[in-house]
């Protein structure tokens, strides 16, 4: 039986993510763990995360999960979600600036504050919270069966700015167009929460569970 490891470093809603993975991958074992050795045995990994980036990086280091993620990212399919996507970049401006894992060149920046008026003249709020569409900017197996411009659930105040355009997989519009999904080699990551995005989100998770890069 193959296994999907969910990296549990004490920050975030792993309950619903675990349940969603069980639903889309009934034939795989879902291993929610903070033990690097146990996670390294898994066939694919999910790095979730909510909260502040400094606390996140501190916990990843304390549990020796940062090296594990970097090492695993060279071998098995890796899915980053929300803060779990942001820590894949080199640097985040959050919490006065924090170096991150650096699996993607680029950084994480805050939406302009106070927010600018939107296209329709309405005042925009930060955090960007709610349902927004993702425009698919290039083909990828993770998009299989996901209609272009589908609605996904977002909740974040910072967003990734990958250095290379080729790493962007999909964009969303809020204040400006930003990278809502990124990918390279066997790594794919979403700013939104697929586990909170109803049917299209389940499709993304199912695609990840079956992805053989």
């Amino acid at each position: 039986m193959t296994a999907i490891g969910v990296v549990d470093y004490g920050m975030g809603n792993l309950h619903s993510l675990g349940k969603a993975l069980e639903r889309v991958a009934p034939d795989q074992r879902i291993v929610v763990s903070y033990d690097p050795e146990e996670l390294l045995k898994c066939d694919r990994l999910v790095l979730p995360g909510v909260g502040g980036v400094r606390a996140c990086m501190n916990e990843l280091k304390r549990l020796e999960l940062n090296q594990m993620v970097t090492e695993a990212a060279g071998r098995v399919p890796l899915l980053g979600i929300c803060l779990g996507m942001q820590v894949l970049l080199e640097w985040s401006d959050e919490n006065n600036g924090v170096p991150a894992l650096g699996l993607f060149p680029g950084k994480v920046v805050r939406f302009p504050d106070p927010p600018a008026a939107g296209i329709d003249g309405q005042r925009l709020k930060v955090p960007h919270m709610g349902w927004n569409r993702i425009t698919q900017t290039r083909p990828h197996p993770i998009w299989a069966g996901v209609p272009d411009d589908s609605w996904f659930y977002f909740v974040h105040s910072y967003h990734a700015q990958p250095k290379y355009k080729k790493h962007t997989l999909g964009t969303a519009d809020y204040v400006h167009t930003f990278a809502a999904a990124i990918a390279r080699d066997n790594i794919v990551a979403f700013q939104c929460h697929p586990e909170k995005s109803q049917a299209v989100g389940m499709q993304v998770l199912a695609n990840f569970a079956n992805w053989s890069p």
């Binding site: 920050m11 909510v50 909260g51 502040g52 606390a55 955090p127 919270m129 105040s157």
Partner: peptide, 8 residues
């Protein structure tokens, strides 16, 4: 907010 993120 500091601990779990202001968005939550």
């Amino acid at each position: 907010g500091d601990r779990y993120g202001v968005q939550g």
